[in-house]
Amino acid sequence: MRVSTAGTYTTRLSQGRTVTATLPPMPEPITPSRWDVEVEDWFPGAGPTRTERVHRALALDTVRSWNSARSATPSG
Rank of each mutant, 00 (worst) to 15 (best):
Q15P: 00
S4K: 13
S65L: 12
I30Y: 09
P29E: 06
D61H: 05
R12W: 01
E38C: 04
L60F: 11
H55Y: 06
E28V: 06
P24L: 04
G47C: 03
G45P: 03
R12F: 00
L13Y: 00
D61S: 14
T62V: 13
T22Q: 12
V54P: 00
Q15S: 10
Y9T: 02
P25Y: 10
Q15G: 05
P74M: 00
S71D: 13
A21W: 05
E38M: 07
P25V: 10
D61T: 15
E28T: 08
A59W: 01
A59Q: 06
V19F: 01
T11M: 13
D36S: 10
A46Q: 10
A6V: 06
W66A: 15
P32N: 13
G7Y: 13
M1L: 14
R50F: 15
G16H: 01
T5F: 02
T49L: 12
S4E: 15
G16E: 02
S65V: 03
T11C: 01
S14E: 06
P44G: 01
T31Y: 11
T22W: 13
T11S: 05
D61K: 10
V63Q: 07
N67P: 11
N67T: 11
R70K: 10
W66C: 13
E52K: 12
W42K: 05
A72I: 08
G45A: 04
P29T: 02
T62Q: 15
R17H: 06
T11H: 11
T18I: 08
P74V: 00
T51H: 09
V39G: 10
Y9K: 05
R70M: 07
V19L: 03
S33K: 12
R53D: 06
R17I: 05
I30A: 05
R34Y: 02
S14R: 07
S33W: 02
H55M: 09
A69P: 01
V54C: 01
M1S: 08
P25L: 12
A59I: 08
A72M: 10
M26E: 14
A59N: 07
A57F: 03
E38P: 03
V54L: 09
V3R: 03
